[in-house]
């Protein structure tokens, strides 16, 4: 019997090991390719790397130079404008569409997929379509002229003060349907008994939404904000496809700044520093959010 016992013991111990062995490659990949790389980029941001990585330590010089660069400050201001408008408009449109769709609408099954399909497209496709649509000589402006409204002007995409707003238009077009879906799911989860009780008390529809429904949608607001925020910071493809960062540098965002300084302007140290700033911005929002979500699940 002891022999068999021993064998069983080895078997259970092996059984205990197998999950860890299977999990190991994924964990190793994440630790190296995500966290190792973050450390590496962080280190490069403290060196005088130019075209190639160098390991000569220069402290926080790159960060000081980064924040002295007009291009970086333009990119930051653009990001603030873009992110604020993008998040706000997507939330307003998404919430409005969700509430309207929730009014026992016939054809909801047809409308919902129409609102949402842009989310399946690449930002490059979206950019290609909107670039043309917004081009004064070809798109909307030209069409209005042909239709007889000859004073109509819409040349934002060629205007260095207005071009950043064209990014907002295209990005809102792509994502607002998704925000609608998040709010609609939230609305469908609300207990109708609460609404009925308020109706018996004589609450108007407006009051019903303002005082009961919208406060109950808090989790959906939070998720929408977090998703839109990290998409705004990561925005790269859309800028490349829609404006190429131009006219001039008018629509440069941190993501495009990082790419051009690292790979075409041979300032890898500065590029790395800008990437670190981007990561820290995302982390400042994501880490508390994920922490609370995971914590809630653990209870």
């Amino acid at each position: 019997m002891p022999v068999q016992n021993n064998r069983a013991d080895i078997r259970t111990r092996l059984q205990d090991l197998i999950p860890k062995i299977v999990l190991a490659p994924s964990v190793a990949a994440i630790l190296i390719f995500v966290y190792g790389f973050i450390v590496f980029t962080g280190y490069l941001s403290l060196t005088d790397s130019k075209m190639l990585p160098s390991f000569d330590f220069v402290g926080f010089d790159n960060y000081a130079r980064l924040f002295d660069l007009p291009a970086w400050n333009t990119a930051l201001i653009n990001l603030v404008i873009f992110a604020a408008l993008y998040i706000a408009i997507c939330t307003v449109i998404g919430l409005a569409l969700a509430i309207l769709l929730d009014q026992k609408i016939r054809g909801e099954g047809l409308l919902r997929p129409i609102y949402l399909y842009p989310m399946a497209l690449s930002f490059i496709v979206t950019g290609t379509a909107w670039k043309w649509f917004l081009d004064p000589g070809l798109g909307l402006e030209n069409t209005m002229h042909l239709w007889g409204w000859t004073d109509f002007q819409f040349g934002w995409i060629k205007d260095r003060h207005m071009a950043i707003y064209t990014l907002v238009i295209a990005a809102v077009w792509q994502t607002s349907g998704f925000v609608m879906a998040m709010f609609l799911a939230g609305l469908r989860g609300i207990d109708n008994e609460i609404l009925k009780a308020a109706q018996i008390d004589g609450a108007s529809n407006f009051a019903l939404y303002r005082r009961i429904v919208i406060p109950l949608l808090r989790p959906a607001f939070l998720s929408a904000f977090v998703i839109l925020f990290h998409m705004a910071i990561k925005s790269y493809d859309l800028v490349i496809a829609l404006t190429g960062g131009g006219p001039g540098r008018a629509t440069e965002l941190p993501a495009t700044f990082m790419y051009s300084y690292t790979f075409t302007r041979n300032s890898m140290g500065i590029g790395a520093a800008s990437a670190v700033i981007m990561l820290m911005t995302v982390a400042a929002i994501m880490i508390p959010y994920l922490y609370s979500e995971l914590g809630r699940k653990e209870k």
């Binding site: 999950p19 995500v34 790389f37 990290h230 910071i233 990437a275 995302v282």
Partner: peptide
């Protein structure tokens, strides 16, 4: 499940949301 699995999962989850600019150079 094992000790530290939630932490590992948290690390994997955060990896979904990093701006990929941070990994371009080493990659």
């Amino acid at each position: 499940r094992f000790r530290g699995d939630t932490l590992l999962f948290g690390l994997m989850l955060f990896a979904c949301f990093i701006p990929f600019q941070i990994v371009l150079i080493p990659m």
